[in-house]
Design a protein around this nucleic acid. Structure first.
Lengths: 232, 232
DNA sequence: ATTTATTGTGTCATTAAGACATTAACTTAA
DNA sequence: TTAAGTTAATGTCTTAATGACACAATAAAT
């Protein structure tokens, strides 16, 4: 690097931040999509996101959160970077880079808000293909889904698709929805115990049979990862 | 998103691409660092990288490769995205975003080239702390090392720190250097067989004892990941 | 009371890794 | 030439976590 780089004389690529926000609703995996109100791809559906506002955002994760809050009114329970996608052809305005976040939220936490707006909607993962989608967001959603699936096999992260208080049955159901296969209830229970990141409540709920124990995430704990996958 | 975003009226953050290129040399984990020839942090050591050249680069991975080739003369054998790091304070020039790649290479492949230049050097991971390092690159290197360590537990990726032809003993040694613990030779052999991504050569090499079987990566195969970690 | 549904427990089978002994093949030095 | 030392490769038992599944507990419905 012998030259001196001057910001003003360098063509910076277009930089945006998008998020793939997942939830599980009625036994189906959903992704939050937004009807685009501006060019390019006006009228098509895309991921919630936009440009960094360097006067407001301390870092790009704040951009992601800010844009998600605009659509859902709350911050997601889980947020991590997925990947950046870039190229000369993915945006008609020129070379563009988008940093994509991967997020999870409990459906109940945002249902009322999402229902009142008509530019943001939960889209069933199976229906994304039938939708007019902006940019390469179809591909990005596929990649995010693969990451979520993988994560469900070795991590407790899917718990963030559940409400604060949840049962083993609900947890099992969310995992099965994500990975698309049945898992052993026993395996979930063993992991809940081994993870040591949940506490039982002094409360049980109806389930159609025996009352189900309620759990919640302990305060201040991190997501636990296991050293072995559930079998695929 | 009701407003229309015009590129020219929007302050784009500074966007750069950097790489953490690892290798294993003499039983020690090394990272490629570059003495900065320009501001900011002139004279300090940093990761190889720089700005995207939208007239040359089709995507940001090409930027990473181009910058690495400038320093090593060859493309790394393994390259994947690590993460982006951003913030208002990490670069004195303003809000900056850097996309960091994670790369592996066999030391022998670049040794002669690295030795002839004096602005790029293999730095022992244990010595990064004693070096004047630019930006938040010290922190980024730590994160990259953690990722490499994790990857060594469930993936065959560390094979890309080895020359084209390698023995089980060499593979074992690389893994042990990365994770900082001894592993069972038997475990490596089992994984080499299970992965089905290597072929044995009709050639053996001296080792101080019995001749060692040589292996190479099969053409066109992808890195295999296992569903279980080596024990930590 | 009996059936049905769901939760929770107990236990054996399965699978992949860890531990380690044994054998194989080559080098070095008495 | 032989014995000792070194590294490679294999055989096999143990260990740990998941899968499979039977069975017991508890509530609702009939």
């Amino acid at each position: 690097m012998t030259e001196h780089y001057d910001i003003t004389e360098y063509k910076n690529p277009l930089f945006t931040v998008d998020s793939v926000l997942f939830t599980v609703k009625n036994g189906a995996l959903k992704v939050l999509m937004v009807k685009r109100a501006s060019e390019p791809f006006i009228g098509r559906w895309g991921l919630p996101g936009g440009f960094v506002d360097v006067d407001i955002d301390d870092s790009v994760s704040m951009t992601a959160l800010r844009k998600l809050k605009e659509k859902t009114s709350v911050a997601p329970q889980y947020l991590e970077q997925l990947q950046t996608y870039s190229g000369i052809n993915r945006d008609p305005r020129g070379f563009s880079v988008t940093l994509v976040y991967f997020a999870l939220i409990a459906e109940a936490q945002v249902s009322t808000h999402i229902e009142t707006v008509d530019d943001a909607k939960w889209i069933d993962l199976d229906e994304v293909n039938n939708l007019p989608v902006a940019f390469d967001h179809k591909y990005i959603i596929e990649q995010a889904k693969a990451r979520l699936k993988q994560k469900a096999l070795y991590s407790m992260a899917p718990v963030y698709c559940l409400p604060e208080h949840f049962t083993v049955g609900q947890f099992k159901s969310v995992i099965e929805t994500i990975i698309g296969k049945p898992v052993q209830r026993k395996s979930i229970i063993r992991r809940i115990e081994a993870a040591d990141m949940f506490e039982t409540l002094d409360e049980k709920v109806k389930s159609g049979g025996r009352l189900a124990q309620l759990y919640k995430v302990k305060a201040g704990v991190d997501i636990v990862n296991f050293e072995r996958n559930l079998s695929v």
